[in-house]
Design a protein around this nucleic acid. Structure first.
Length: 262
DNA sequence: TATGTATGGTAAG
DNA sequence: TTACCCTACATAA
């Protein structure tokens, strides 16, 4: 589930449902002991940076959540009944409640640690403050393969394994191409493509990278493997040729070496 | 019931 | 580079 689009969608949904309210905060599972320090406080706003989700409460207390690979939220009406015992964090507002399960991180963050965390993140294509020049500079310096670098959150924040494969396919870039060898146009196209894909993901609440005119039916009914060009597929949706399964940054990287020659 | 898989990340070696 | 953490869900047995 969780690439940057998921986190930004959560920030929007949770902000809309909970911001301005005094919340009940608990940890049914018991592993988030600081829940008590947030219980009864007013939520000021929510914020997403790449794959990191922040809840800013009054008294300047900041809750940091990172879903990792398995983390997910279950939404329900308030009061929350039948909460799973694995629920690390339960946020209850007047109308809606959100139960967090399986996160990599769920913690209270000091202002200092929050700054340090954000300082480690590259520009997030979903944020208005993202600076493409910073990305350009970072890429121009490296000979690392672009496929590997796209998962490096300190270069671009929010891209995950699906968007990496799909953006490289759409831009026709070979995943093993060294960053510094990419042309300015290629870098610009990659950034624009990632931005568009992530925005669509926020809107659709899922990853659909295939162009609207290429989709076989209504956007809401598209099956997973028909929503992408190469990720998790055996054949390329664009050219019909075989999809290669490479390994990069310890993850499976899907690519169509016929389409991706750049 | 058991197994395999997943759109992520960190710390140790 | 490897080990390890986190959990739900689909599928196989």
């Amino acid at each position: 589930m969780p690439e940057g689009h998921t986190i930004h969608r959560l920030a929007l949904d949770h902000g809309k449902a909970l911001a301005g309210q005094v919340l009940r905060v608990s940890s049914p599972q018991g592993r988030f002991e600081d829940a008590a320090r947030l219980d009864g406080l007013r939520l000021v706003r929510t914020e997403a940076h790449g794959k990191h989700l922040f809840y800013v409460f009054e008294k300047s207390r900041v809750l940091h959540v990172h879903l990792g690979l398995f983390g997910r939220y279950f939404a329900a009406k308030s009061p929350a009944t039948r909460v799973r015992p694995t629920t690390r964090l339960l946020l209850e507002g007047a109308e809606r409640s959100f139960a967090l399960v399986g996160p990599t991180a769920c913690e209270l963050l000091s202002p200092t640690r929050r700054r340090e965390l954000l300082a480690r993140l590259g520009p997030d294509p979903l944020r208005p403050d993202a600076d493409l020049d910073v990305v350009r500079a970072a890429l121009a310096r490296r000979k690392t393969p672009i496929g590997q670098v796209l998962l490096d959150q300190s270069v671009i924040a929010g891209v995950g394994n699906v968007y990496r494969a799909e953006a490289l396919l759409v831009t026709g870039i070979h995943p093993e191409r060294p960053c510094k060898d990419l042309s300015d146009d290629q870098v610009d196209a990659l950034w624009a493509t990632l931005g568009r894909m992530l925005q669509d993901g926020v809107r659709d609440r899922r990853i659909i990278t295939v162009a609207p005119e290429e989709l076989p039916g209504p956007r809401s009914k598209i099956r997973r493997k028909e929503a992408v060009y190469v990720y998790g597929r055996r054949t390329c949706l664009r050219c019909g040729g075989p999809v290669s399964k490479l390994t990069s940054a310890n993850r499976t990287l899907y690519a169509c070496l016929a389409c991706q020659t750049g």
